[in-house]
Write a protein that binds this DNA or RNA. Structure first.
Lengths: 141, 141
DNA sequence: CCTTTGTTTAGAATTATTCTAATTCTTACT
DNA sequence: AGTAAGAATTAGAATAATTCTAAACAAAGG
């Protein structure tokens, strides 16, 4: 998993603008927190991390910022079963491995050919804009 | 998608017993409702369907029954994003296609070889007990 | 029987998330 | 600069799905 490079504030503004959204200090901090520690944090965890840098931010704003970043395709949402939504700034197509023992989440790179093979399993008439692949198990390493 | 045949009440009892659980009229009805209409209903939807047959059942019991059936491997849970959990009596390994327009869910059969290929992408030390594959998009057919 | 253990039930509690309404910021005119 | 219009932020209320709680019930074993 090579990390996705953090984009510049200007590029962030641009990406937001592309989706009709504005850049704000809050959105910048939320984004930088996400790329700073790619452990698939929940909104609550993001909130806690952001507060140390910007103590006045509210949880509602964190949700708003995360949604904005998802909308402009800088961040992906990840869900495991019924757990809280997690956020992932890795934009490479990849799967997730969810360690049932520790709760940790790892990114798993997938060859594009394999994804293509998966897509080809769909009957004609089914057009998938997205595939989500999640492994569950134990990582002993 | 060939449908999974409904198992007999005796076999249901046996499966439950294998997991240290008892059979009950409620569990039988919940199971028969699930196999009766395989449209991946939510707990609420199951509740509504079961009530017509057994009007005194409670929602908590439906949750309990569904959990029991999941535990003894007769039913799978399916989650889409943040939506309510859905229940699926199809035990063949398969993926799901979630139609974003209608909200409908379709089962997609997957060749075991492809699943094996997916599993082989995991680094050594990662042992997956389960893989979940979800397509999102639009079904025009 | 009588005890133990599992199940059901109704309703309360919980959790993650979204909504609301008031305020504050930006942007873009004039 | 001054101001109107549209976004974004905030705190707290509301919601939705699910889980928990405690009491009643049922079944199984000695």
């Amino acid at each position: 998993m090579q990390p996705t490079a953090q984009i510049s504030p200007a590029a962030l503004s641009q990406k937001l603008a592309d989706s009709g959204l504005r850049n704000t200090p809050q959105r910048e901090v939320v984004y930088s927190v996400l790329v700073g520690k790619r452990d698939h944090p929940t909104a609550d965890e993001v909130f806690a991390r952001v507060k140390s840098e910007m103590p006045t931010i509210s949880l509602a704003t964190v949700y708003n910022c995360l949604e904005a970043l998802v909308q402009c395709n800088l961040v992906r949402q990840v869900n495991f079963e019924r757990g809280p939504t997690r956020y992932c700034p890795n934009l490479h197509p990849h799967a997730h491995f969810h360690d049932e023992a520790t709760g940790a989440t790892y990114d798993i790179d997938l060859p594009p050919a394999l994804l293509e093979q998966l897509r080809s399993q769909l009957p004609s008439g089914y057009r998938a804009s997205d595939v989500e692949i999640t492994f569950r198990g134990q990582a002993t390493a």
